[in-house]
């Protein structure tokens, strides 16, 4: 690959290639690429389609105590500085417990009505995105096929840039 007479004498090669600048440049390039190289964390995706038939539903249903609905409410508790995950009126901090409960409800709904009920995620505006993704992850882990977001009307506006 690298031509040039590194080990040949000047007598054998009347036009010796001076590889020193070449090596200098390659070293610089190598250093640059080595420094800028980073092993990326594997990125993937989760899909959750928005409803196609209703458009934006401004009349969001209030939270119901009816446990046939798989609605997970995420509330930010300012006092405690943490996000509460509510299913019905109970809080479930444990992922496994929440997942099993959601799955049980899903199976029960399916057995009774033959329909696959969606998991409705209802986060408050202040809740961190990580908490929402975690609920989506639990739902997928327990093979709950449908997910929906319940969005309340807000006055929040991002100023134009």
């Amino acid at each position: 690959m690298a031509g040039g007479g590194g080990g040949e004498s000047n007598a054998d090669n009347p036009l010796p290639l001076n590889v020193v600048p070449l090596i200098d440049v390659i070293f610089c390039l190598l250093l640059f690429f080595m420094c800028s190289f980073h092993f990326k964390q594997l990125e993937g995706k989760m899909e959750a389609w928005l409803p196609t038939d209703k458009g934006m539903n401004n009349n969001a249903k209030p939270q119901s105590d009816n446990l046939t609905e798989i609605r997970i409410v995420l509330q930010y508790d300012k006092g405690e500085g943490r996000v509460k995950r509510l299913f019905g009126r109970s809080e479930y901090a444990d992922d496994e417990e929440l997942g099993k409960l959601m799955k049980r409800q899903f199976d029960s709904n399916k057995a009774n009505s033959g329909k696959e009920a969606p998991v409705i995620i209802q986060p408050e505006a202040d809740v961190s995105w990580e908490s929402v993704v975690r609920v989506m992850d639990i739902a997928r882990l327990y093979e709950l096929p449908k997910m929906e977001f319940s969005l309340a009307k807000t006055d929040f506006v991002i100023p134009d840039k």
């Binding site: 990125e43 995706k45 899909e47 196609t52 458009g55 934006m56 995105w129 993704v133 929040f156 991002i158």
Partner: peptide, 27 residues
């Protein structure tokens, strides 16, 4: 990020008829 920013995006997309949303997550 606070959820309200993602909600803002979802609303804007839904109002335009874009419903196929994917959410980036990492291993």
């Amino acid at each position: 990020a606070p959820f309200r920013f993602i909600q803002e995006v979802q609303e804007a997309l839904a109002q335009a008829g874009i419903y196929k949303l994917e959410y980036g997550a990492a291993e």
